[in-house]
Simulated assay, not measured.
Amino acid sequence: MSHQVSEQRCYIGLTQWQHAAWQENILQRSQNEHILKAYSRHFSSVEGNSTFYGLPKADTVKIWTEESDPTFRFCFKFPQEITHRNHLRSTTKETSAFLNRLQPLQEQLGLLCIQLPSSFDSDHLPTLSNFLLNLPEGFNYGVEVRNLCFFDKQETEREFNQLLAKNNVSRISFDTRALFNDPSDDPISLKAKMHKPKLPVHAISTSKYPMVRFITPLDWELGTDYLTPWINKAIHWMDEGKTPFFFFHTPDNAEAPELAAYFVNQLEKQRPGSCLFNPWLPAKKQDNLF
């Protein structure tokens, strides 16, 4: 990275920095304190999904720089206009606008994420190669694919992995196994299964900054067995001198902080001090007035 990072430690984050369910624990703050400031007291990174739908205002980016710790890392998604509508073709202008808008945050950027739709298959690899070749230096990038051809363990996957490694771009892993192996059919779970990809997990690191996205069933404790291999993988990556990013989801994200805290606790039993994470105090209980 062009800026300093904490080597051989894991960045820990969620898919967003505010949620109604978090107000009494991780988002406890004074009336005038920005909600991002409260979030970044505990988590060292966040997935910036809002940029997928449009560029933030310049004033908003300025606020983000002011209200987060200098060691905090934002991992923003490329706009869907670039990745989904145009499949990375003829997007020089849009890509420049995206990166220029985030320029004030450059020292606080982790990975910029190129999430590709399931329609992006092996026929598009030359387009991806050209796109990566023309990306400016000074940023770190990751690619998430959702077409099964990139999980075939054959020529297509090898070519894809080699392309990413050649350009020092991370292959982002999205582990949805716990979600899809859970039989729950409540509306929240069904909605999550409708929108999340059901794909194999190939835990391959093609850059110095691996990224893992992990989602559980609504009852997140039913998915913790799937975390054990990631704990071992995190230790392996750190032993290689890499700096992993881990992001935690649940179908409604209400208890995603608890899931993240569980992962940190389990990992630090084996590797104390390996996570950039600060636990929060339990929610304050109101005194009984009667």
Score class of each variant (00 low, 15 high):
2 S>T: 10
2 S>W: 04
9 R>E: 07
19 H>E: 05
21 A>M: 09
31 Q>F: 10
35 I>R: 11
35 I>K: 12
40 S>K: 06
49 N>G: 09
51 T>S: 11
53 Y>D: 00
73 R>C: 03
76 F>E: 03
80 Q>T: 08
84 H>P: 06
85 R>S: 13
86 N>K: 15
90 S>D: 15
95 T>E: 13
96 S>A: 15
104 P>D: 05
104 P>T: 03
107 E>L: 11
109 L>I: 05
111 L>E: 00
115 Q>I: 02
116 L>R: 03
119 S>N: 12
119 S>V: 12
123 D>V: 14
126 P>W: 14
131 F>C: 08
131 F>R: 07
136 P>L: 04
137 E>G: 13
140 N>Y: 08
143 V>D: 05
148 L>D: 13
151 F>G: 03
152 D>T: 10
155 E>V: 14
163 L>V: 02
165 A>G: 08
167 N>P: 07
169 V>H: 01
175 D>R: 04
176 T>Y: 07
197 P>M: 06
198 K>C: 15
203 A>R: 12
203 A>M: 12
208 K>P: 01
208 K>S: 11
210 P>Q: 00
211 M>T: 05
220 W>S: 00
222 L>E: 11
224 T>L: 07
224 T>P: 03
237 W>V: 03
238 M>H: 03
243 T>A: 01
243 T>L: 00
251 P>T: 01
258 E>Q: 15
263 F>R: 02
266 Q>A: 13
267 L>P: 00
271 R>S: 08
275 C>G: 03
275 C>M: 04
279 P>D: 05
